[in-house]
Nucleic acid binder design. Structure first.
Lengths: 353, 353
DNA sequence: ATGAAAGCGCTAACAT
DNA sequence: ATGTTAGCGCTTTCAT
């Protein structure tokens, strides 16, 4: 009988007991073990006890891979973001995880490193694992490759940036409005020459925030000189050069709007560094998109347009599970508001050299 | 033939074509499809082309769940940490992910929220999915529940904190040495009354750092008053109260050693807040365990004992894959060095009220 | 209340 | 070079 087989291989290293082994040891049928393991009704307390003993003795743990194969659902979702080490994405990921947990699902994380090919590779690997759904922070600008997967039933929600070339659920912060408000704030404090330093133009949030900057300037009837606008990598050297350029020159800016948390931090460094030809000692006003820890402890405190990363994650995961629970409506486009937090740097008056 | 079946259900929503469907459509055997999908040799270019066409037409994607069931390896590893939103764990997680990626594995993340039950639940869920290996930052103090899983072949490496009640691979930072160095640094700058504020005593790193503090004080022949030592939650209110207590009183401390990044930030806030009875205007020296972004931009800059979270993650993941590649040696205990970074706050001289 | 049989989609081991 | 057969460990269906 199966009894014998399980006796011969009670704890072989690297192999694990199966329901069949447990059934053999408990002297019951396979299905009875399944019932006990899954808490299904139709098992007498006595039988259940015997099965449970066998489970404990053998150290049995249900193999979810096999279960998944049969049931078709993996109870896991994938999250593809740019970089888990970025302080903006940590809380977002955690929020998605909490929602997943509330629905009994695990979270598989992947960093695209802002590389479109890597995003695609990661997404398709997750699809091959048959995750039930996907939350994606796009690095790529073309998501047509996802259409067959979505048609095949993998629910997908985009967050922070919209998908490219396809329509789908998406949850965004109001980049345009937030940037416009931030720049208007600087204008309200007397600034006329304001610089904008943002992320690479292929990134949706970067161009939206630039659009907000231009709108605020236009609303106030202010010109925007080419030398005041710089989009590109958020690498400190690039940002530093951009800042020093617009702070020097013939028409130096008296205020800077920084397009995201990494840009802001570098600009703060530039403004704090010892005066040079390029970065003058005169105070320069600063408003940054994204809040960050300790922004309030710097002198002056850094005025920011805050977006709530955790809320973004919760909203996206919420949509995803609504889809998994059967919502088949048209794709929803959610835009969450931003909030201006004045701390000092954005309220400095303009000073001319 | 299978041809018919696949014609009848070419793109049914929520279902996906299988290798059998592809084989039917291409007019070849199942195994030939498998060969093409997996890039195995023994297929003529012409056949391969036909199969590839069928794959594209049907939108076939290999079901890795089935593959896993057959092969026994999932090409995924689990990482259980305290909180993905903590700036210390983001880089650690990212580093583990990079190593996993280099080995073709995906990373399943889970946050224990410092709750032992939740850690256990998460770990066992990962084991049920048959992850190939596990990197665990313990929240619990007893990991005997993991012994059967490890015996069954799930490689496990602990990081940041040692496991409880079992022996296993572990990668730690030198909490004891780092704290001792930091406190010795304060002593070298003339301090005699130094406070210690740390995390909860059940957390290994907290007690190790306290031990380092005591060692440095003892080495210098200095007494330690009970009122100068406070272990507990890292919640700001708790830390604030602890700081204010040791800064006031009959024998106020002239310097504080903060046990981790969260404690440090709160202490900085207390020291920066307007003077009160409890927190005097006189400058208080501070050294914190863990480096954090912008520590250099605060005034004074915050002197820290830095540990390299990414390196910790890389080392742990490295051990894990060494195990998966067959290393069956005794458990290894790795301790990584810390580094003192002087920025000003730790070099302030003692001042008496 | 319990169990036997079929099969989820794939790969390993053999045919041919 | 290609196809056939037998499972991987579970759940589903249908008997008993």
């Amino acid at each position: 009988m199966a009894e014998t087989a399980s006796r011969l291989t009670p704890h072989r290293y690297g192999s694990r007991p199966t329901m069949k082994d447990v059934a053999g040891r408990a002297g019951v049928g396979l299905k009875t073990v399944s019932r006990v393991v899954n808490g299904e009704p139709g098992v007498t307390p006595d039988t259940e006890r015997r099965v449970q003993e066998a489970i404990d003795a053998l150290g049995f743990r249900r193999n979810d891979s096999a279960r998944v194969l049969r049931k078709g659902r993996t109870a896991s979702i994938g999250l593809v973001l740019e970089d888990l080490a970025d302080p903006f994405y940590g809380p977002l990921s955690r929020a998605v995880e909490e929602v997943a947990r509330a629905h009994g699902a695990l979270l598989i994380n992947g960093s695209s490193a802002e590389d479109p090919d890597r995003e695609r590779e990661l997404v398709l690997a997750l699809c091959a694992r048959r995750v039930d759904g996907l939350v994606v922070i796009p690095a790529s600008g073309d998501h047509r490759y996802l259409a067959p997967e979505m048609a095949a039933g993998i629910a997908t929600v985009f967050v922070d940036r919209p998908p490219g070339q396809i329509d789908a659920d998406v949850v965004l912060s109001d980049s345009f409005g937030g940037a416009r408000d931030g720049v208007a704030h600087l204008i309200a404090h007397g600034h006329r020459r304001i610089g904008f330093i943002g992320d690479q133009p292929r990134i949706h949030t970067a161009t939206e925030r630039l659009r907000g900057y231009r709108a605020a300037m236009a609303d106030a009837g202010l010109p925007v000189h080419d030398a005041w606008v710089s989009l590109g990598s958020t690498a400190p050297t690039r940002v530093r050069a951009a800042a020093e350029t617009m702070l020097g020159g013939a028409e130096p800016v008296t205020a800077v709007f920084a397009g995201n948390n990494r840009v802001t931090v570098t600009v703060v460094r530039v403004l704090a560094s010892p005066a040079s030809l390029a970065s003058p000692a005169r105070p320069v006003a600063l408003v940054g998109f994204d809040d960050f820890e300790l922004a309030d402890l710097l002198r002056p405190g850094v005025t920011v347009i805050a977006q709530d990363a955790a809320r973004l994650g919760r909203a996206a995961a919420g949509r995803l599970f609504a889809r998994l629970d059967g919502d088949a409506g048209a794709p929803e486009h959610t835009v969450l508001p931003t909030r201006l937090i004045a701390r000092g740097s954005g309220e400095l008056p303009p000073t001319t050299p």
